[in-house]
């Protein structure tokens, strides 16, 4: 099962922030690129207290565990999520933190590649409210890891979103691109 193409992530935050939607979209995009995927959501007692998280694994061959011991990348959208998942991220792993919500005082690991993303602010710039912060984060992650093409992500939104919510597609696209652009900007700095 040794793979050339392999990514594993954890996305975590509160229910309502679109954590699971982000995980689903990423998987869907990878399927469009003919990858193997697993999506594993939090459940049961884990969901008490309003937390939501999911593990996403992408690979070019059959995936073993859908729950990585040490995810290589993460999207963190709440302080409890930071406390819970920061210790298990792989050495030198990528941690995207929504800095509009989370205080960064608690970050105690030096090895990690930590990116502070003002996702709420960027979402407000795009759609006038903070509801698409998840898409900003996802756009950044995809852009930073190149795990799928941004175009695949945009295409997957079109395939997943129902007719009723069609008008939200361009907004989601904008939020993703805002995240991607921020990564490009960070790279230049």
């Amino acid at each position: 099962m040794s793979s050339k193409y392999y990514f594993d992530f954890v996305f975590s935050g509160f229910g309502g922030q679109g954590i699971l939607i982000a995980g689903n979209l990423l998987c869907y995009s990878a399927i469009l690129e003919n990858r193997e995927v697993t999506f594993f959501p939090s459940y049961g007692v884990e969901m008490r207290g309003g937390s939501a998280n999911c593990y996403v694994v992408l690979s070019d061959s059959q995936i073993g565990s859908p729950i990585p011991s040490h995810p290589m990348g993460s999207i963190i959208m709440s302080t409890p999520a930071l406390i819970r998942f920061l210790p298990i991220i792989k050495n030198n792993g990528l941690v995207l933190i929504n800095s509009d919500i989370i205080s960064t005082d608690d970050i105690n690991r030096k090895d990690l590649d930590i990116r502070l993303i003002p996702a709420n602010k960027l979402s407000i710039d795009v759609i006038g409210n903070e509801r698409l912060a998840n898409m900003v984060m996802l756009g950044y992650l995809v852009s930073a890891t190149k795990c799928v093409k941004i175009e695949s992500l945009v295409k997957s939104i079109k395939e997943v979103v129902s007719e009723k919510h069609k008008k939200l597609i361009p907004l989601n696209e904008k939020a993703i691109l805002a995240g991607a652009e921020l990564f490009e900007k960070d790279k230049r700095c």
Partner: peptide
């Protein structure tokens, strides 16, 4: 876990 997990 198998019943919750999403896959292709």
């Amino acid at each position: 876990m198998i019943s919750l997990m999403k896959e292709k």
